[in-house]
Design a protein around this nucleic acid. Structure first.
Length: 943
DNA sequence: TTGTTAGCGTA
DNA sequence: GTACGCTAACAAT
C-alpha cells in the first residue's frame, strides 16, 4: 500500500523560477552599496541581498526544483522589432558591475542551474518554464520584479514580487486574487492593461492620459483589449480620442509584452531538483566576498532541506504479520532491526533509535470509557520496524504470549517510540501492562521544536497530518472508509481493524520519530526531551490515573448555597429595573445599563460598551451609591460572582468519575512557555481569592479508601514562593535583590524601602502593594500606562516609580532590556534549560504586534524557567517516592504548586521529600523557598 | 451544529 | 502588561 491515492491532488513538486537580472537589480537598490565592499573594492550588496532573498524563499517555500534565468546583453527579438525598446535607461551603476557574475558563481556553489537564451529575455525563459511546470503538474513560484510576469500568474502559479522600499519591504506573495485586487483585472489581462497605459521601464509609451484605472474600466467593460479596440468609437471624451490616436502604439506594446512560452531550453525539470550547497566552494566564495553572518543562514536553510530530504522515504509497507505465539514475537523482534535498516533513507536513523520499535496501540473507540478517565480499552497494538510490521491482538492473546509481550513492553532496555507517550502509559496501564524504554515521542519532540496544535487540531489524525506535512513533506494518509471492510455485515459485533492502514500509520510515527529526534539533536534540544518531557510524561500519567477525590455532598451543599445567592441577587436586580433581564447576557445588560438606567458609558468593545467587572467597579465610583444604577450593579456583581462559582462546582460534578474522583488531563504540548495546561476539567483555575471560592477547595479531599485499595490519610501541598521573582533576580544577578532573598527578607517590603527611601519597617501597606504590583508587572513587560491603571495613580507617578525602581535595581532593568535585545537578534527566547520560544512578530512593522511580542519575549524566559524547574521537581519527587517505596503520590500541579495524597505513616517523610526536591530542583543565586502544608482537604492543606 | 465574543477563574 | 481553559450568549447555518 502506498500513499499515492492521497497525493493525486497534490502538486508533483514546487518549482521556483527566478528572473536573475530582475532580482539582482531589486537587490542592488534594496541595500546601500557603501556597506558592502570588499577589501579589493568589489561591491557585493546585490549579491548579498540576492543570497538573502534566495535563502529566505527556499526556507519559506521549500521548493523541490529551482532554476534561475538571466538576460543576455545582446539584441533581442524585441529590440529588433522596436529599436527604442528598453531604451533611454540610465547607465548601469558602476557599483553593480561584476555582481551578476558573482551571483552566477553563488548559484553554481548551491548547485542551482541558471539559463540564458540567445535573443530572448529572462522573462521569456521564466514564461516557458512556467508552462513546462504547469504541464508537469507542478506548483510554480516566480521571483521577478518585472511587471510583465504578472501575466503568468494563475491557478498554481504565484509571483513573489520583491518590494525594495516602503513599509511592506520584502517579498510580496501575489496570486491571481492579489493581482486583481491591485489592478482590477485578472492576471491574464494585465498585458492588455499595460499595453494601454504603456510601460515606463521598457520605454513603451501608451495612451496619454490613460492610467491603470481607466484601462481596467475599459477592459472590464469590453472583455479584453480586442474588445476595447473594437469598441473604441464608443469611448467618449479626451481619453477616447487619445485611444483612437494611439492604437498603433497599443498594438505594438501588446505585441512586445507578450511573453514567449515555448522556447527551446537547454535544461529540463529533472535538472533542477538537486540543489544544495557545495560547502567548500561556497565557503571559498563567501571568504572572497567577506560574507560571514550569512554562512549560518545557509546551513540553517539547508539543514531544513536535508532533514526533509531524509524524510523522502518510500512508505511502501511489507507484509503485516499477525503474531500469536511467544516464539513468533521473539522471532519478529530479532529481524526487526534489519527491517529498519532495509528502508532507504537519505539520512541515517539516529543512533539512539537504531533498535527502537514503534508501538502503536489501537483502542476500541466504540467502547465506553472507563469512568471519565480517558484510557480506552486496547484491542491490540501494531509494532513497526522499517517496512515490517507485526500486529498483536490484545483481546484474544495467549497467556504465554502475553507474558513475553508484557516483559518486553516493561523492559527499559528495549527501545521504543510511541506517539503521545502519556496516553500510552495510561492505555497500557489499563490493560495491565507497564510501558518503559520509550526514547522518542514525535508529539513531545515537535512541541519542544515549537509545534502547538490549535484546539481543534488536537486529535491524533490532525497532529499526524500537520507533522507529516511539515517534517516528512508527505501527506498523512486518511483511513480508507470502513464501508468496504464491513461488507454488508452491518451488525458485526467485533470492531474491524484495518491492519494494512494501521501498519502504515505506525510507519509514519516511526519516520517522524527519526526526523524529529534528529532535528532535536541538530537544534541542541534533545536534552529537553530526554531529561524533561519524556520523564515528566510518566509522572503526569500517574497523576491523571490517580485523580483527586471530591466530596460530593459538600459540592451539592455548595451548589445550593450558591444557588440561593444567585436567586436573591437576580430578584433584587429585577425589582430595581422593574422587569426581567438575562444577567448573563452582556448585550441585554448593555441595554439596561446604558439605555434604561442611562449610566455613563464604559470602554468600547467591538459592539457596544463593556460590562465587565472592572468597568462596573469603575462605574460604581462615578455614580451616586444610593441610585438604582448602583444598586443594580451591586446585584449584578453578586450574581456574577456566585454564577461563576456555581459553574465551577457544576463542572466538577460532571467531571467526577465513577471512583468519586476527577481525573484531569494535563496537556503537555499546549503552551508557548513550557507550562502544562489542565483540561476536562481545568483544575488549575479552582478559586482561591475569595472566601466563598475557597469553599470549593475544601471539597477536594483525601479519600481514605479509594478503589485502588491503598489507604490515604491527608493531602499535602507545597508551593514555590515568588518563583518568578526569584528567577528574575537570579537571571539579572542584581546583588541587592539577591542579598535580600538570601537574608530571607520580605521582598516587597525591602524593595519598597529602597524605592520610597524609607526604613523597611516604615513601608506602609500601600507602598508595599505598589512595589509588589510593579515587581510582578516587570515580568509581564509592564508599561507606565499599565502600571498607572493597575495602581490607580497617574501615568507620571507610575513613570516616576519605575525610574526609581530601576535606579535602585539597575541590573533588573539591564536584564529586561537584554532579554528583548537577545530575542530580537535570535528570533527566539530561551529558558535557563534551553527551552525556546520563537517569536515571529518581534521584527513586525505593526507596532502593536511588535510590542506584544517584546512583552512575550520578556516573560517567556521567566515563566518558562519556572515551568522547567517545576517539571524537574516533579520528576525528582516522583522518583524519590518510588525509590523509597512510598505509596504517597502526586495528584495535581498548579504551575508553582504540587498536591500530593499521603499514605499512612508517610506524612513526615513525604513532606521532607517534597520540600527537598522542590527547593533543590535547581541551584540559583537565591534560595528556592517552598511553603508546605497538610490537611484533609486542599483548602485545609493550603495555609 | 459550529464558531466567535465577552467575561472570569488560576499562576 | 505574561500564560492558560471553560461557560454562556449569540450569530451564522
Amino acid at each position: 500500500m502506498t500513499t499515492a491515492d492521497s497525493k493525486t491532488q497534490d502538486p508533483a513538486g514546487r518549482l521556483l523560477l527566478i528572473d536573475g537580472h530582475s532580482l539582482a537589480f531589486r537587490s542592488f537598490y534594496g541595500v546601500p552599496p557603501e556597506n558592502f565592499v570588499t577589501a579589493s573594492g568589489q561591491y557585493t550588496n546585490a549579491v548579498y541581498s540576492f543570497t538573502n532573498t534566495l535563502l529566505g524563499q527556499i526556507r519559506a517555500e521549500k521548493p523541490t526544483h529551482i532554476v534561475v534565468a538571466f538576460d543576455l546583453s545582446g539584441p533581442t527579438f524585441r529590440t529588433e522589432q522596436y529599436q527604442e525598446y528598453k531604451g533611454g535607461r540610465a547607465e548601469t551603476p558602476a557599483e553593480f558591475a561584476g555582481q551578476i557574475d558573482l551571483i552566477k558563481r553563488l548559484l553554481h556553489a548551491l548547485n542551482i542551474p541558471w539559463v540564458t537564451v540567445e535573443s530572448y529575455e529572462a522573462d521569456d525563459i521564466v514564461a516557458t518554464m512556467t508552462a513546462r511546470g504547469k504541464d508537469a503538474g507542478f506548483e510554480v513560484l516566480i521571483i521577478s520584479g518585472d511587471r510583465d510576469s504578472f501575466q503568468l500568474v494563475g491557478d498554481g502559479v504565484t509571483l513573489l514580487y520583491p518590494v525594495t522600499s516602503g513599509p511592506s519591504k520584502g517579498i510580496r506573495r501575489m496570486g491571481p486574487a492579489e493581482i486583481e485586487e491591485k489592478y482590477k483585472v485578472p492576471p491574464h489581462l494585465y498585458p492588455d492593461l499595460a499595453a494601454l497605459t504603456g510601460e515606463q521601464a521598457d520605454n513603451l509609451p501608451g495612451v496619454p492620459g490613460v492610467g491603470p484605472g481607466f484601462a481596467a474600466k475599459w477592459l472590464n467593460e469590453y472583455g479584453d483589449l480586442a474588445g476595447v479596440l473594437e469598441n473604441q468609437d464608443k469611448i467618449k471624451g479626451k481619453k477616447g480620442e487619445a485611444l483612437r490616436e494611439n492604437v498603433d502604439a497599443v498594438l505594438r506594446n501588446r505585441k512586445l509584452n507578450r511573453l514567449v512560452d515555448d522556447l527551446e531550453l537547454p535544461i529540463t525539470l529533472d535538472d533542477m531538483d538537486d540543489y544544495g550547497p557545495n560547502h567548500d566552494e561556497l565557503n571559498a566564495l563567501f571568504d572572497e566576498l567577506e560574507f560571514n553572518t550569512i554562512r549560518k543562514r545557509v546551513s540553517e536553510t539547508f539543514a531544513d532541506r536535508e532533514a526533509e530530504a531524509a524524510a523522502q522515504v518510500d512508505m511502501t509497507m511489507g507484509q503485516t504479520q499477525s503474531i500469536e505465539t511467544a516464539a513468533e514475537f521473539t522471532a519478529w523482534l530479532e529481524v526487526a532491526s534489519s527491517a529498519i535498516e532495509s528502508v532507504e533513507r537519505a539520512t541515517a536513523v539516529p543512533t539512539r533509535l537504531e533498535d527502537a520499535i514503534t508501538v502503536f496501540p489501537v483502542a476500541d473507540t466504540d467502547a465506553p470509557e472507563a469512568g471519565n478517565a480517558r484510557e480506552k480499552q486496547l484491542l491490540g497494538m501494531m509494532l513497526g520496524a522499517g517496512s515490517g510490521a507485526a500486529w498483536i491482538d490484545l483481546v484474544d492473546i495467549q497467556p504465554d504470549t502475553e507474558k513475553v509481550v508484557g516483559e518486553w513492553l516493561s523492559d527499559p532496555s528495549s527501545a521504543k517510540t510511541v506517539f503521545d507517550v502519556k496516553q500510552q502509559y495510561k492505555n497500557f496501564h489499563a490493560r495491565g501492562f507497564e510501558l518503559a524504554g520509550v526514547l522518542e515521542d514525535p508529539m513531545l519532540s515537535s512541541y519542544v521544536l515549537g509545534y502547538i496544535p490549535t484546539a481543534r487540531r488536537r486529535t491524533f489524525t490532525a497532529m499526524m497530518e500537520d507533522l507529516s506535512e511539515q517534517y516528512l513533506r508527505d501527506a498523512f494518509p486518511a483511513e480508507p472508509s470502513a464501508e468496504t471492510a464491513v461488507q454488508g455485515d452491518l451488525f458485526a459485533t467485533e470492531p474491524v481493524i484495518n491492519l494494512e492502514y494501521t501498519a502504515l500509520v505506525t510507519r509514519y510515527i516511526q519516520e517522524l520519530s527519526y526526523v524529529l529526534h534528529q532535528e532535536l539533536e541538530n537544534q541542541e534540544q534533545l536534552a529537553l526531551l530526554e531529561t524533561m518531557e519524556l520523564p515528566v510524561a510518566r509522572v503526569l500519567a500517574q497523576m491523571e490515573l490517580a485523580g483527586i477525590a471530591l466530596d460530593a455532598d459538600a459540592l451539592a451543599d455548595l451548589k445550593s448555597h450558591y444557588d440561593s445567592h444567585i436567586k436573591q441577587a437576580t430578584e433584587t436586580a429585577y425589582s430595581i429595573i422593574g422587569h426581567e433581564v438575562n444577567l448573563g447576557s452582556p448585550k441585554q445588560l448593555q441595554a439596561v445599563l446604558f439605555e434604561e438606567l442611562e449610566l455613563p458609558t464604559t470602554r468600547k468593545l467591538k459592539s457596544g460598551y463593556s460590562t465587565d467587572a472592572e468597568s462596573m467597579a469603575d462605574l460604581l465610583t462615578r455614580i451616586n451609591p444610593d441610585s438604582d444604577g448602583a444598586q443594580f450593579l451591586q446585584a449584578l456583581g453578586t450574581y456574577r460572582d456566585y454564577t461563576k462559582l456555581k459553574q465551577t462546582v457544576e463542572g466538577l460534578g460532571k467531571a467526577t468519575a465513577a471512583d468519586g474522583r476527577v481525573h484531569t488531563t494535563f496537556q503537555q504540548n499546549a503552551t508557548s512557555t513550557g507550562r502544562l495546561s489542565s483540561i476536562e476539567p481545568n483544575l488549575q483555575n479552582i478559586p482561591i481569592r475569595t472566601e466563598e471560592g475557597r469553599k470549593i477547595r475544601a471539597a477536594f479531599v483525601v479519600d481514605p479508601k479509594p478503589v485502588d485499595g491503598t489507604e490515604y490519610v491527608s493531602l499535602l501541598t507545597a508551593d514555590y514562593s515568588q518563583i518568578e521573582m526569584r528567577i528574575m533576580v537570579h537571571l539579572s544577578q542584581d546583588e541587592k535583590l539577591i542579598q535580600a532573598y538570601r537574608d530571607g527578607e520580605d521582598l516587597h517590603r525591602f524593595v519598597g524601602s529602597q524605592v520610597f527611601g524609607v526604613e523597611p519597617e516604615d513601608v506602609t501597606s500601600e507602598m508595599r502593594a505598589k512595589v509588589k504590583a510593579m515587581s510582578y508587572g516587570l515580568a509581564y513587560g509592564l508599561t507606565k500606562f499599565g502600571l498607572s491603571k493597575q495602581l490607580g495613580v497617574s501615568v507620571e507617578e507610575a513613570s516616576k516609580l519605575t525610574v526609581n525602581y530601576f535606579q535602585r535595581f539597575g541590573k533588573v532593568g539591564r536584564f529586561l532590556r537584554n532579554t528583548v535585545k537577545d530575542a530580537n537578534k535570535a528570533g527566539y527566547t530561551e529558558t535557563m534549560f534551553g527551552r525556546r520560544r520563537v517569536l515571529a512578530d518581534l521584527g513586525s512593522s505593526n507596532r502593536q504586534r511588535r510590542e506584544a511580542a517584546e512583552r512575550a519575549a520578556l516573560n517567556a524566559p521567566i515563566q518558562g524557567t519556572a515551568a522547567d524547574i517545576m517539571k524537574i521537581a516533579m520528576i525528582n519527587v516522583h522518583e524519590r517516592l518510588e525509590s523509597e517505596k512510598l505509596k504517597t503520590r502526586i495528584l495535581l500541579q498548579i504551575h508553582d504548586e504540587l498536591i500530593l495524597e499521603v499514605a499512612p505513616s508517610e506524612e513526615e517523610r513525604a513532606r521532607e521529600i517534597l520540600e527537598q526536591e522542590m527547593s533543590g530542583a535547581v541551584e540559583l543565586l537565591v534560595p528556592m523557598d517552598v511553603q508546605a502544608g497538610t490537611g484533609n482537604s486542599w483548602h485545609a492543606a493550603g495555609h
